[in-house]
Simulated scan of single mutants.
Amino acid sequence: MMVSLRQSLAKDRRGATLIEFALICPVMLLMMMGLGELLYQAYAQSILNGSIQKAARDSAIEGGASNVATIDGLVITQMAPLIKNLTNNCAPSGSTGTWCSTRKSYDTFSEVAPEPFTDTNSNGVRDPGECYTDENGNGAWDADPGLNGQGGASAVTLYTMTITYPRLFPLAGLMKLSPMQTIAASTLLKNQPYAGQTVNANVTICT
């Protein structure tokens, strides 16, 4: 009798599907949340990329430099259906969505790089006393010689928009990641020649 009962229990498959589902379901949910997070980020990034291109072209025309706040606002309007209640904050903290825009202007495309210098000791670092070309006229060597702002006619402008927003799913907490996600887009365009270009004189300094 006891042997027969054991054999009957060993053959009983009722409830096996429920147990299998209980084992697989958490893994599947995590995978689906992770995939959903990645797809949402990719979609938000594509919208931001397109918006920043349009905003950069609007900034490059005559009068664009005086309307940067309005132009930035149009980018945020494009993002609003995806990310709600974005606020302008370049030092984001907490759990609310933020955005930050920066503009750096250069005389030419070739100046979007560290100011050139004579590397006397060949260590790849500009040391005191090594001569350099002061491209932005501030009397100091700069790894980024760009000047803040849109710049004037024919200037080259690097426009960057960064957006930080709360993640969709609590997956980040389980993986010890930040609950906030950051996306950014940049574009480098030359302002239209609506006037004569003001160019900084390149001076060689050896201090």
Results as ranks from 00 to 15, higher is better:
Lys11Asp: 14
Gln45Pro: 09
Gln192Gly: 10
Asn136Tyr: 07
Leu74Trp: 08
Val68Asn: 13
Gly94Ala: 06
Pro193Leu: 09
Gly124Phe: 03
Thr96Ala: 15
Leu168Phe: 10
Ile52Leu: 06
Tyr40Leu: 14
Ile47Gly: 02
Val75Ile: 15
Met2His: 12
Arg126Tyr: 01
Thr160Ser: 14
Ala69Gln: 13
Asn49Thr: 11
Pro179Phe: 04
Ser66Ala: 15
Val125Ser: 05
Gln53Ile: 09
Gly196Tyr: 06
Thr118Arg: 00
Ser59Phe: 07
Leu48Phe: 03
Thr87Lys: 10
Thr118Trp: 00
Met2Trp: 09
Ala201Val: 15
Leu48Ile: 07
Glu111Arg: 03
Gln7Trp: 08
Tyr165Phe: 15
Thr96Ile: 11
Ile52Asp: 01
Leu9Asp: 08
Gly73Thr: 12
Ile19Asn: 05
Tyr194Ser: 01
Tyr40Asn: 10
Lys176Arg: 14
Ala143Tyr: 02
Cys90Asn: 08
Asn138Ala: 02
Gly137Leu: 11
Asp72His: 04
Asn49Phe: 04
Val3Lys: 13
Leu168Ser: 08
Met2Pro: 01
Ile76Asp: 04
Thr102Phe: 05
Tyr106Thr: 04
Pro179Glu: 08
Trp99His: 08
Phe109Tyr: 15
Ser51Glu: 03
Thr207Ile: 02
Thr164Glu: 09
Pro116Phe: 11
Tyr43Ser: 08
Thr133Arg: 06
Leu74Tyr: 06
Ser8Ala: 14
Met1Ala: 14
Gly36Ala: 10
Pro114Asp: 03
Ile83Ala: 07
Met79Asn: 00
Ser4His: 10
Pro145Phe: 01
Asn148Lys: 08
Pro114Asn: 03
Cys90Trp: 10
Pro166Gln: 07
Glu37Phe: 10
Ala80Ser: 14
Pro114Ile: 04
Phe117Trp: 14
Thr162Ser: 14
Ile52Asn: 07
Gly139Asp: 11
Asn138Thr: 07
Asp144Gln: 05
Glu130Asp: 11
Gly173Ala: 06
Ile163Ala: 01
Cys100His: 03
Val75Met: 05
Asn121Tyr: 04
Thr207Phe: 02
Cys206Gly: 00
Ala16Cys: 05
Ser95Ala: 13
